[in-house]
Computed example of a mutant assay.
Amino acid sequence: MALWRPEIIGADNVPEQGPVILASNHLSFIDSVAIPLVSPRQVSFLAKEEYFTGTGVRGWVSRTWFTSIGSIPVDRDHARAAQESLDKALAHLRSGGVFGIYPEGTRSRDGRLYRFRAGAAWLALEAQCPVVPVALSGTAALMPVGARAPRIKKFTVRFGTPIDVTRGYGGLPAGLARRRVSDAIYESVLAMSGQEPAGAYNERQADA
């Protein structure tokens, strides 16, 4: 990791114990490697089930790597994939773990910050755990789309002030509470990242 000289800001904002969500912008495939490597606690992301089921040397390397960084396998093509993903994430949080999520849903292809979907907010409200907004910068150059290996580029990971969902949201209708928590996370990430707001939701690409 020292080879890439990452700048890490606000790591002490991550609670030392208990369940917590790290909600980040998403610029590159390498984001799910960068955050676990610099986080003060082990953080688990969802990962395609194919990364755990490959054969041969390549399959072993993939399975070993994603297991080592605590990734949670999920079948994204299953009819209930979205709910299964949330269920697995919620179980991880209820066990006291740290879960990483990209509320944009998939990576930004143009560098803008897309609207956040409600999954992170739903998890936080269900688990009654804090959300630490995370802003990445430089990872798109670190590993651009189509690159086979990371380049030697500096990148920055900023951990923001935790959002306490146990205060100010309890008396609201469920849908409104999720929207307000999502907006709070979005505004924090937007302020830290300096990205241009896209004003729309991002759609999953075939290779995202």
Rank of each mutant, 00 (worst) to 15 (best):
K154T: 15
E196C: 07
A191P: 00
A141N: 14
A191H: 09
F155Y: 12
R148A: 14
T161P: 00
A191Q: 07
V134I: 05
M192L: 12
R180A: 01
A149L: 15
L142M: 10
K153E: 14
A135D: 00
G171Q: 10
G138S: 04
R167N: 12
L172A: 10
I152N: 12
Q195E: 10
Y169I: 00
P133M: 03
Q128W: 04
G138C: 06
M192H: 05
V145D: 14
V157Q: 04
T166N: 02
V145P: 15
E126R: 14
G171D: 13
P144I: 05
W122I: 08
A191S: 09
T161M: 08
Q128A: 14
P173V: 08
V165D: 07
P173Y: 02
L125F: 02
R180M: 11
P133I: 04
P144C: 09
M192C: 01
R158T: 13
P162Y: 04
G194C: 06
S188C: 08
K153S: 12
V134H: 07
F159Q: 05
A184L: 08
V189T: 00
Y186V: 01
G175P: 07
K153Q: 15
T161Y: 06
G119V: 02
M143S: 05
K153C: 13
G168E: 05
L190S: 04
G168W: 03
R167T: 15
T161C: 11
R167Y: 10
S182G: 09
V181Y: 03
V157R: 01
R158N: 06
E126H: 12
P130G: 01
C129P: 00
P133T: 08
Y186W: 04
A140K: 11
A174G: 11
P133C: 01
